[in-house]
Simulated scan of single mutants.
Amino acid sequence: MKLSSRLILSAVAIAMLSGCASQSPYDQSAQTGQTESTGMNKTAKYGGLGALAGAAAGALINHDNRGKGALIGAAVGGAAGAGYGYYANKQEEQLRQQMQGTGVEVQRQGDDIKLIMPGNITFATASADISSDFYSPLNNLANSFKQFDQNSIEIVGHTDNVGGYQYNMGLSQRRAQSVANYLLSQGVNPSRVTTRGAGPDQPIASNSSDAGRQQNRRVEINLRPLPGAQTGTTQQ
Score class of each variant (00 low, 15 high):
Met169Gly: 06
Gly73Lys: 05
Asp64Ser: 14
Asn168Ser: 05
Ala79Gly: 04
Gly119Phe: 10
Arg218Phe: 09
Leu52Asn: 00
Asn161Gln: 12
Asp149Ile: 01
Ala128Tyr: 12
Gly197Tyr: 05
Ala88Glu: 15
Ile8Cys: 13
Val76Lys: 06
Asp133Ile: 08
Asp27Trp: 14
Leu60Gln: 12
Asn139Ile: 00
Ala55Cys: 13
Leu115Gly: 03
Gln202Tyr: 11
Leu71Asp: 03
Gln28Val: 11
Pro225Ala: 05
Gln23Ser: 10
Asp129Ile: 12
Gly197Lys: 02
Met1Ile: 08
Tyr182Glu: 00
Arg196Ile: 10
Ile121Glu: 07
Ala56Gly: 03
Ser22Arg: 04
Ile130Trp: 08
Gln186Met: 13
Tyr84Asp: 08
Asn143Asp: 13
Ala126Cys: 03
Arg192Glu: 11
Gly164Ile: 06
Phe123Asn: 11
Pro190Val: 06
Glu92Cys: 00
Thr195Lys: 09
Gln109Leu: 10
Val106Gln: 03
Thr35Asn: 12
Tyr46Ser: 09
Gln147Ala: 13
Arg196Gly: 03
Leu49Pro: 06
Ser144Lys: 04
Ala44Asn: 09
Arg224Gln: 14
Val179Pro: 04
Val106Ser: 02
Ser209Asp: 10
Ser178Arg: 03
Leu60Phe: 15
Ile153Trp: 04
Ala82Leu: 04
Ser131Arg: 15
Ala55Gly: 13
Gln236Lys: 09
Asn120Tyr: 13
Gln98Trp: 10
Ile116His: 05
Glu154Gly: 12
Tyr26Met: 13
Ala124Met: 11
Thr38Met: 08
Glu154Cys: 01
Val179Arg: 06
Gln23Phe: 02
Ala11Arg: 04
Thr195Glu: 08
Gly50Thr: 00
Asn207His: 09
Ser172Lys: 07
Ala51Ile: 01
Gln94Phe: 07
Gln150Val: 02
Gly212Met: 11
Met16Ser: 14
Leu9Ala: 12
Asp210Tyr: 11
Ala198Gln: 13
Gln150Trp: 13
His158Tyr: 14
Leu141Cys: 03
Leu52Lys: 01
Ala51Tyr: 02
Leu115Trp: 06
Gly110Gln: 01
Lys146Phe: 08
Ile116Phe: 11
Leu223His: 03
Gly50Arg: 01
Arg218Thr: 09
Ile8Ser: 09
Leu52Trp: 00
Arg217His: 11
Thr35Ile: 08
Val179Ile: 15
Phe134Leu: 03
Ile61Asn: 00
Gln186Tyr: 04
Gly73Gln: 08
Ile221Arg: 04
Pro200Leu: 05
Thr32Glu: 07
Lys45Trp: 14
Gly47Tyr: 04
Asn89Ile: 05
Gln236Gly: 14
Ser29Trp: 00
Val193His: 08
Ala176Phe: 07
Gln230Ala: 15
Asn140Glu: 12
Asp27Pro: 10
Tyr84Ser: 14
Ile121Trp: 03
Gly101Gln: 08
Thr159Ala: 10
Pro190Gln: 11
Ile153Gln: 05
Gly187Phe: 05
Ser172Gly: 06
Gly39Ile: 06
Ile113Ser: 00
Ala82Thr: 02
Ile113Thr: 08
Leu115Cys: 10
Ala142Leu: 00
Ile72Arg: 03
Ile8Lys: 07
Ser4Asp: 14
Arg217Ile: 14
Phe134Cys: 04
Gly199His: 10
Thr38Leu: 12
Arg213His: 13
Ser185Tyr: 06
Leu141Lys: 03
Gly187Arg: 11
Ser152Gly: 07
Val156Thr: 13
Gln235Thr: 13
Ile113Glu: 00
Gly33Trp: 04
Ile155Ser: 10
